[in-house]
Design a protein around this nucleic acid. Structure first.
Lengths: 323, 323
DNA sequence: CCTCTTCATGAAAACGATCCCGCAAACACT
DNA sequence: AGTGTTTGCGGGATCGTTTTCATGAAGAGG
């Protein structure tokens, strides 16, 4: 059915080796031969069979992207950007979702890993030991997870948080609330506490809850009953819940309370009022992760640690503190 | 590096053929032999090399999903659901984005088609002739596109729109606006016009514009200046723009104008006020599309047409007409 | 003119699985 | 007992590439 290298070879009057070379190492074949081969290939509509290619070469030309939840609006732009980057470098991206469950993560990785040259593990929940094993078996890049000796992409919220703190301070806020929607140590809470303290802003922490819209609803009710004039939420989705509940309670945003999200997803730009948030650039993140993985595959990455920053995007949900 | 069938064979003291059979046709091998093979495979951590398998068998075990824009919040849940369904049936889903550009679509399809057993083309912009060619080359399922003789999944908004019309009518609305954000004939406009007319509701059409947030902002300004009391937007994103602008203009929702979206994305549930919208079930759609494609691959699908319905999800953005 | 490289090309061996054949043993039937 | 059928398994061809090695021609240098 499909046209093979053999047919191209006989059409061009050369051997299969030459056709192969014409595609993989064009400088090793004479210009006129090259052209004949190319014409024949074009005429027949030939393109190499990736299965055969990977069988022989041991390389699949794909990168595996393992993320917690593709339905989280933070990830699609990353997938998209990574796809674009990968394509330019001759790779395909195979994305898979673990549904935030540890059990599924192992299964997913097992299913994907056979078909890719390397893995990008986003905020993996796997124990360090497993990650180490995985890293020994195949090129692996960890995002937002640290294991000594493994390649890592670290997304730093520090700048964004610092800018948020300055922003709030400039508006005269002094009492802030952080809605923590994440369990465990590696979260966003630590760096937020530190930065706010350094800026001399009082910070009350709510939670930890789950990173869901309803968490925001609940937290907003608590905040409305208190004295705080600014809320920093774990992410945009939670911030949206906060916004929603404030509207319901008649609490003015930003007149009575200012609200800040994190991630700068589509949600933030389209909410009412539009949401001040801390942006993590999908392009930067995706590009850095893809490049790091490709370097690791080529043996040049090997435990390198790359970093990505963040910044505040001021919108309509923040304003002067009341009074 | 990786463990092959040969190693398993010698570990189990059988031939490679037997190991292969143990995995692909377990009933053709004696129970005790089967167990020995399985134990050996488990001990070595063997799993078949997909590249070798597809090279020999001509099947890749992957489904290709070509969508206009993965960053459109409508698609991630579909991708997710399809992945879940496909996995249960022994398939992997390879998703790719065309960025809404026709040129990219061809290129994307070319890149993907070599690595999958079949294609799901979502709202393809390709000319009918190309689609026909594609369908001749490989199993293809069209979503929201019709080409005689090709397998098709048709998402019908008819019920949802009818319910929306009834809903508005019951609330006493008579003058409605449809914000069209799509060019071409195959769109949502036709069926909306028909249904609203059948329900005796006057319908003014704005556009066509592009399906973006800003379209909603613009349309809302026009609506606010007019007499209409209800807006049906092309999708949730546009509806959110409408909501946003109404808030800015001080136009009460739903007191002065009711707003309805389409798709029931995350945006609709989390907006302020929450958005009444027409739901297209991601699970149903993804399952139906995957099943249809798998049937087509197996030669059982062949130009079948499957249908998926929709329904209204009433939320807080609709209410009684003013006066 | 002869040797020594370089260069373009072809032949053939992999890569790791599947699957068609063929063989032998076990069983059923006359 | 002899013949036919089923069953379980091994041998080996095969899928479409890449890549190593060999070969012969062309070019360089003395």
């Amino acid at each position: 059915m499909a046209v093979t290298i053999k047919q191209v070879a006989s059409a061009a009057g050369v051997s299969v080796s030459t056709v192969s070379r014409a595609f993989t190492a064009p400088d090793q074949v004479q210009p006129q031969t090259l052209q004949r081969v190319r014409e024949a290939a074009a005429a027949l509509g030939y393109s190499p069979n990736p299965a055969a290619r990977s069988l022989r070469g041991g390389r699949t030309g794909s990168l595996g992207l393992i993320i917690p939840d593709i339905a989280n609006p933070f990830f699609p732009p990353i997938f998209k950007a990574m796809q674009a980057r990968a394509r330019r470098l001759g790779y395909t991206v195979l994305a898979a979702d673990t549904d935030e469950r540890e059990y599924d993560e192992l299964e997913t990785i097992a299913a994907v890993s056979k078909q890719v040259d390397g893995l990008i593990l986003w905020a993996s929940t796997l124990p360090e030991e497993r990650l180490r094993e995985l890293g020994a078996e195949m090129p692996t890049v960890l995002v937002n997870r640290h294991v000594e000796g493994m390649a890592e992409l670290r997304i730093s919220l520090a700048q964004g948080i610092a800018q948020a703190a300055e922003h709030l301070k400039a508006y005269g806020h002094t009492r802030c609330v952080f809605v923590n929607a994440e369990h465990g140590e590696h979260g966003r809470g630590k760096s937020i506490r530190e930065v706010f303290e350094a800026h001399d802003l009082s910070l009350t922490e709510l939670g930890p809850y789950d990173p869901r819209f309803e968490t925001g609803l609940h937290a907003a009710t608590l905040v409305a009953a208190g004295e705080a004039t600014a809320v920093l939420a774990h992410n945009d989705l939670v911030a949206l819940g906060v916004l929603h509940q404030f509207a319901k309670l008649g609490v003015g945003v930003p007149d009575r309370v200012s609200v800040i999200g994190i991630d700068d997803t589509l949600l933030a730009a389209t909410s009412t009022p539009s949401l001040t948030t801390i942006r993590i650039s999908a392009d930067e993140v995706a590009t850095a992760a893809a490049d790091l993985l490709i370097d690791t595959i080529a043996g040049r990455g090997e435990g390198r640690v790359a970093g990505i920053g963040s910044r505040l995007i001021p919108r309509a949900s923040t304003g002067p503190a009341p009074g």
